[in-house]
Design a protein around this nucleic acid. Structure first.
Lengths: 136, 136
DNA sequence: ATACATGCAAACACTTTGCAGCACA
DNA sequence: TGTGCTGCAAAGTGTTTGCATGTAT
């Protein structure tokens, strides 16, 4: 018999959740630093454990970022990101909703698809301007 | 004055490139292990440096995988992946080409978009079968 | 009461980097 | 000949985990 694990409402979890709501799309470390302002003894381990737990329940999106720490987002609507190949910075991307992108998958091996993330890559205006010199 | 750096054809680079061509979509460590069979003294550092260099030139795709090592692909056509939320395994996804997906971006901040990666997430058939017990 | 969470620190996984010597062009 | 590359090892970055203790239910 498999039981759902109970989830306790600790102070730490509440503070983490509050930080999540007011931060933009923070990394685990951003959350850690934010919570620590009001609760200096919190540990990174606790932050990571809670973020994973909340994301596991589906109340939080954990978004992996190429060559960088995962970011978290409380808005469950998918939104996308773009990363500059040169300077490695991440930016948000505004995008009309694709008409059910998972429809395009021809073979999904029986997966139940829940969400997706798109990471675009290219050159940001600044890096593009500073010469395309090592582009090819 | 900015100069393009010379690229030397070392034995190591040739072996790395050959390994890339015959492996599926290997991680850096897969490449390292493969090359090491014929050239035992190669070091991980060299493999990483070369993979980055080749990818930087645009001859290789470096594909970041959520919660796992980057994978590399010599076919530059984008292809997508799906990851099981429960068991964390990665699978390839066959997908018809989306009609120029970057067209859907309404605000790209002046980026020059070169490519993109989509990572779907969901439940694989096996994990879905073993009960949806901790789904919500 | 007890199952679950915490803080701490160590371990882990992946990748980059400094350096002295080597080798391709 | 000289710049670029190599092997090695150490360090860097991001995340997980073991353990003894604390706490929400």
């Amino acid at each position: 018999m498999i039981l759902t694990k109970e989830n306790r409402n600790t102070i730490q979890r509440k503070l983490i959740w509050e930080a999540l709501k007011r931060l933009n799309h923070p990394t685990a470390d951003d959350v850690y630093l934010a919570v620590r302002e009001n609760y200096p003894n919190i540990s990174r381990g606790t932050v990571y454990r809670n973020l994973n737990q909340i994301a596991e329940k589906g109340e939080l999106q954990k978004i992996p970022i190429p060559s960088g720490p995962d970011i978290y987002d409380v808005t469950l609507r998918p939104h996308y990101h773009i990363k500059c190949r040169r300077c490695k910075k991440i930016y948000d991307v505004e995008m009309e909703d694709l008409p059910d992108i998972s429809r395009y998958i021809t073979d999904k091996h029986g997966f139940v698809i829940e969400n997706h993330e798109i990471v675009f890559q290219g050159l940001c205006p600044k890096c593009n301007k500073n010469g395309g010199y090592n582009n090819e």
